[in-house]
């Protein structure tokens, strides 16, 4: 079934999965994205591998678009905002620090493994963030009770479809029903992905406007 978004209730909290690779929580007006990997192209260039930086511009533009559309009070990034501390140019640093002002929204970052060593002003950082019955983290969190949901990034989940030499892949939201972990798709343009377990429930992003339940 194709839709422009999928709604999902955890206890009484509404979660909305968007084809723009983001998760929206209307109650608290929070918008969640993860794994943007800014500066990735630069990092590759420094290491002698040519990749264009256009993806960063594209990522910023897409952030602006969704913030405009949903006007969240808080933009929560679940880790890997940057690719590596070695590839954050001054211009990039400034662009990120100016972001709350430009977007007119609060921005928070749950630190990811790639963010290690980054020092950014105007953005509040956490290792893990808790909110009622939801835990926000970068890598999956070991939950102790089954009333809590963990929302995380890190994994870059993708759905792979194969048929007689034909192969397609889509970014997806993936839910581990046994462990109550919801993995968000990677937001960054220059990111690959990994297949996830068969037992996971998946919602695949098939285009910029459509998402399907599988």
């Amino acid at each position: 079934m194709k839709k422009s978004s999928f709604k999902f209730y955890w206890e009484d909290t509404l979660l909305e999965m968007l084809p723009s690779r983001a998760l929206f929580l209307p109650e608290t007006k929070e918008l969640l994205i993860c794994d943007i990997h800014l500066g990735k192209a630069d990092y590759f260039q420094q290491n002698g591998i040519p990749l264009t930086n256009k993806s960063d511009e594209n990522n910023f533009a897409r952030i602006k678009t969704i913030v405009k559309k949903y006007s969240p009070e808080n933009l929560l990034i679940l880790g890997d905002l940057f690719h590596s501390k070695y590839s954050i140019s001054k211009a990039l640093q400034k662009k990120v620090e100016d972001l709350p002002e430009i977007l007119k929204t609060n921005i928070e970052l749950v630190l990811g493994n790639h963010d290690v060593g980054c020092d950014i002003k105007n953005i509040k950082t956490f290792d893990v963030k808790k909110n009622k019955n939801i835990i926000f983290s970068h890598e999956p969190f070991n939950l102790t009770n089954n009333k809590t949901l963990n929302i995380c990034g890190h994994y870059h989940p993708k759905l792979y479809l194969k048929n007689n030499g034909d192969k397609l892949s889509f970014r997806c939201f993936a839910m581990d029903m046994h462990k109550n972990v919801l993995y968000l798709p990677a937001f960054g343009d220059l990111t690959g992905g990994y297949p996830c377990k068969k037992s996971f429930k998946k919602w695949a992003i098939v285009s910029d406007e459509e998402i399907i339940e599988t």
């Binding site: 990092y43 590759f44 290491n47 002698g48 591998i49 040519p50 990749l51 264009t52 993806s55 690719h83 590596s84 790639h114 220059l190 990111t191 690959g192």
Partner: peptide, 28 residues
């Protein structure tokens, strides 16, 4: 042509940050 490395001489953090699939290159 050296875009994607077959062998990583050292398995350090740096090398894992340099992993990228050839299909991503193709798309870009």
């Amino acid at each position: 042509s050296g875009l994607v490395n077959q062998n990583n001489p050292t398995k350090t953090k740096t090398s894992s940050q340099l992993q990228i699939s050839s299909s991503l290159f193709y798309d870009v």
